[in-house]
């Protein structure tokens, strides 16, 4: 399954009330291609920080579901954050990992340990109670149903095909400007 298909399946489960924190690189490109549903905060460098940003948002907005769309290279930089998130276990936070074992936007370099690494095992070990791993479109559909229909913190690792995803040219707005617009959109 390619990452665009995966993003499309996620989109089907989102509502306009959901707040999305979208990881950078190939995840961002995929989610932008299918078209964001509700308020979306797009990550930037530094990598590795965005799971904790999603946690902070979930704690600030318990009235809204917060969905973190993660890349595996990004998440691998700060794996300990999974333990922090599992300890807090905000009921409104969901994580979907695009797992392709490569740094797609920097040229497709392979992650160290890509062939043996199990993010699902790590998430379980960190304390996540709902952890699902999906490899096909059908498995992904079912995993996302369980994740989004559930009432508690959950983690889905979706295996997606490797493809290169070169960085796009910068848009008209810098991150500080996007940040202000995002905050405004939350209360719209």
């Amino acid at each position: 399954m390619d990452r665009i298909t995966c993003a499309g399946l996620i989109k089907q489960k989102l509502t306009p009330k959901d707040i999305v924190v979208c990881g950078l690189g190939s995840v961002e490109a995929a989610y932008k291609q299918v078209g964001p549903v509700g308020p979306t905060y797009f990550a930037s460098d530094p990598m590795g920080l965005w799971a904790s940003v999603a946690l902070g948002l979930a704690l600030a907005r318990p009235d809204r579901r917060v969905v973190f769309l993660a890349g595996d290279g990004d998440l691998l930089m700060n794996l300990q954050v999974l333990a922090t998130i599992a300890a807090v276990a905000p009921a409104n936070l969901r994580i979907v990992l695009f797992q392709n074992g490569s740094y797609a936007s920097s040229g497709g370099q392979i992650l160290g340990g890509a062939e043996t690494l199990s993010f699902a095992t790590i998430a379980r070990g960190a304390g996540f109670k709902t952890v699902i791993e999906a490899r096909t479109e059908d498995e992904t559909r079912k995993a996302l149903d369980q994740l989004f229909d559930g009432k508690s913190l959950g983690f889905v690792a979706v295996h997606v095909a490797r493809d290169k995803s070169p960085s796009e040219a910068p848009g008209p707005l810098a991150q500080a400007e996007q940040r202000a617009l995002f905050m405004q959109s939350l209360d719209a």
Binding site: I19, V21, Y41, P46, G48, L49, W50, A51, S52, V53, A54, L55, G56, L57, A58, L59, A60, R61, N78, Q80, V81, T84, R179, F182, M183, L186, D187
Partner: peptide, 16 residues
């Protein structure tokens, strides 16, 4: 790790 704290504080601000 402390940089996770930066992320959490940032996310909190985004959410008001």
């Amino acid at each position: 790790r402390e940089d996770d704290g930066v992320g959490i504080c940032a996310g909190a601000f985004l959410g008001g």
